[in-house]
Design a protein around this nucleic acid. Sequence first.
DNA 1: TTTT
DNA 2: TTTT
Lengths: 117, 117, 117, 117
Amino acid sequence: MSINVVTLVGRVGSDPDMKYFESGKVKCQLRLAVNRRSRSDEPDWFTLELWGKTAEVAGNYVKKGKQIAVKGSLKFDSWSDRNTGITRSSPIIQVDQLELLGSKRDADNDMGDDNFS
Amino acid sequence: MSINVVTLVGRVGSDPDMKYFESGKVKCQLRLAVNRRSRSDEPDWFTLELWGKTAEVAGNYVKKGKQIAVKGSLKFDSWSDRNTGITRSSPIIQVDQLELLGSKRDADNDMGDDNFS
Amino acid sequence: MSINVVTLVGRVGSDPDMKYFESGKVKCQLRLAVNRRSRSDEPDWFTLELWGKTAEVAGNYVKKGKQIAVKGSLKFDSWSDRNTGITRSSPIIQVDQLELLGSKRDADNDMGDDNFS
Amino acid sequence: MSINVVTLVGRVGSDPDMKYFESGKVKCQLRLAVNRRSRSDEPDWFTLELWGKTAEVAGNYVKKGKQIAVKGSLKFDSWSDRNTGITRSSPIIQVDQLELLGSKRDADNDMGDDNFS
DNA sequence: TTTT
DNA sequence: TTTT
């Protein structure tokens, strides 16, 4: 395999989308907002794919609004458009390391504040 | 801006596509093949965008088949589909560093070989 | 220059060490604790060097205990040991991008708590 | 574990230093020269540590002068100076992916290349 | 669709 | 010397 390394820091746009397969495998998809240099620019939105234990950690601790850092690689998923039959591809960040950022406080919404709800 | 770092090593799929703007700016687009772990898998093909001096270096030294390493960030370019009017986006590696790999010999295609045709 | 990319996420061990040169240049040094896989292991401590605008941001917003992400490259600084005269070198992360992590709340120590003292 | 990602491209300074442990583990150490921006500057020399299958690949295919790309993380090894008893530490790149660069020709200087067949 |  |  060639060198293909991606590191991103951003905020998660919605709660994790978990899939539990009959094989026992676990998959988690997240959408991550990564800001551009200018605050007035729209962020780039990336689709992250996590498997196994990393997916389970995400399922347990990542929520909408949570700030995370990820390391992974960039892939393309190919799929056939239902209507047109045209093959399309969409970029996916295959995550192999996930780090939850901010203090526990950030995630907990303690003391009545509710920034991330 | 958030942390958004991509590092790739691969081989260029065709000669550089250069654009010289009236403003004096220079842009280069390349398609890069990055192998997956298994050689039997198809590689991922990425679109690279280079500007300014980095673009000029690419224009002068990168040719089809050339092995390169790049550092940059991952963005999405949005555009409106001419036929359907639907807004689509395609991922772009915005390159801020380019490194030419292999010996000069590799690039020269001496001895009549042409690996990627 | 060859590809030399480092991305780190960690917590700062002490307040920033700022130096203002007569030339107008600004330099900031930080010590960053980056945890290893096992929580029982000691973290790795890295020396970060920031210049110019990035240094000033660090001087204004980074404090002891602050969580940050940085992108940069790994260098060695050489220096002569005063006592022995032996040339030593120490690794330095030359930072070209700094991102402050956590909510504003984390840094502000609001509500009377003082997690990082 | 925190995010700690290093990507380097450079040339190896000497043949691989292999160690085969009784446990069956294999370790390979390499010294890698990574050029700075200016060609007149001395390169930075990094110590790489590879284990297991990656170490064996290095042992079989990496030679002095070989161009490689690596992905890994930055650690410090601590050791006690024999003479002074002072604890010193030296930075190590823990490699988890190795990519051999250039054509087979580069390393071998043969004429009958067959890179992609 | 996230945040500051 | 930081945090959880």
